[in-house]
Design a protein around this nucleic acid. Sequence first.
DNA 1: GACACGTGGCT
DNA 2: TAGCCAAGTGT
Length: 357
Amino acid sequence: MGRFGRILIKWYDKNKRNLPWRSTRDPYKIWLSEVILQQTRIEQGLNYYLRFVKRFPTVEKLAAADSDEVYKMWQGLGYYNRADNMMDTAKTIVKDFNGRFPADYNKLLSLKGIGNYTAAAIASLAFNISKPVVDGNVFRVLSRLFAIKTPINTSAGKKEFELIASKLISNHPPAEFNQALMEFGALYCKPKNPDCEKCIFIKGCIAWQKKEVISYPVKLPKRNIKKRFFYYVLIESNNGDGSFFLMKKRDKNDIWKKLYDFPLVEFSNKTEPHTALNKLLAEINLKSSKYRIVDISDNYQHQLTHQQINAVFIRIFVNKIENIEAENSILLVNKNDITNYPVSRLIERYLQDQKLI
DNA sequence: GACACGTGGCT
DNA sequence: TAGCCAAGTGT
C-alpha cells in the first residue's frame, strides 16, 4: 500500500460528491454512466444518465430499443456515435454474454464503444479488478505531481502514465482508488485555477515546486479548424393533414450522422443565400416554380472540435410539392411531428428561434 | 499515428 | 473573443 493511495482514498471518503452511479455496482449502470461521461461534463451528462436508467433499466431493455428513440434521448449530448455503439454493445451482451457484462478487462475492451478507459472503469468499479483508469484527470494529476513532460496525446505518453498509475493503484481497493484520483483531479487539480494552496499533495508536487503547475499536462498542438458554410432550405408546404416540412436523415460519413436535418447545400466560402437557394432547388429538382421566401436567417455560428459551421436558414413556402427527385429519401414531416426527430443542437436552436418546436 | 467526432462552460 | 477543456473511441 503506497502512501499516496492511502492519503488519496482517505481524502475521497471525506470529500466525494454524491453521484447516482456511485451507489451501484451494477455493471450495466456503470457502463451507461461511463459512456455518457466520455468527454462530457458531469453536469451535462447527469440528467441523460437518469433518463436512460429510467427508460432502460436493464441491458435487455436497451438492446430491444428503437434506434431513433435512443438517438432522440441522446440529442444534445454530442458524439452521437456513442449511441450507436451503445446499442450494438447492449445487443452483444444479451446475445453473446447471456445478459451479463464480462468481469474481464480484455473482453470488455472488445465491445463497441468501450476503449481503454471505459474497460478499466467497468472492471474496477463493477468488478473490483485492479486496473487503473487513465483519463484526463489522471493525466493532469500525475503529470503535475511528477512533472512529466511527455505529451499525453501520444502513445508513449499513454503508456508512461498507465504504468505509473498501475504502480500507484497496487494493493489499494481499485474502485475507491480510481474514483478518488479522478475526483481529486476534478475538484482540486483542475486544468485552470487549481486549488494548490489547499492541496493535500502540495509538498510532494514537483510541478508546484517548479512553479509550473499550469503548464501540465503537456499536449501536442492540434490542427486548424476547418470553416464550412451551410445553407439550409426549409421547404414548407401543405397537404390534407396540414403544414409539413421536407427533412432528411443524415447518412453520409460526416458530422451528425443519423440525425435529421433539412435539404442542404454547402459551400467552402460565404455565399449569397439566393445563390444557395437556386442551387438547391435545382439539385432536388423541385418542379414547382412558385415559391415564396418566408425568412432568411442571420448566420448561425456553430463551433465543433475540428470545424466551425456557419449556417444560414432559408425558409420557403411552396404551394404544391410535385416532384422531389433527391438522390436519397426525403421525408415529409408534419410540423407537429418535428419534435420527434433527433436533431443537432444547431437545428434545435434554429427551430426554437422559429418557434417550430 | 493522425484525425474525426458535439456540446457547453470558462477564461 | 477565440481557444481550451471535459470520466475517449473508432478508423
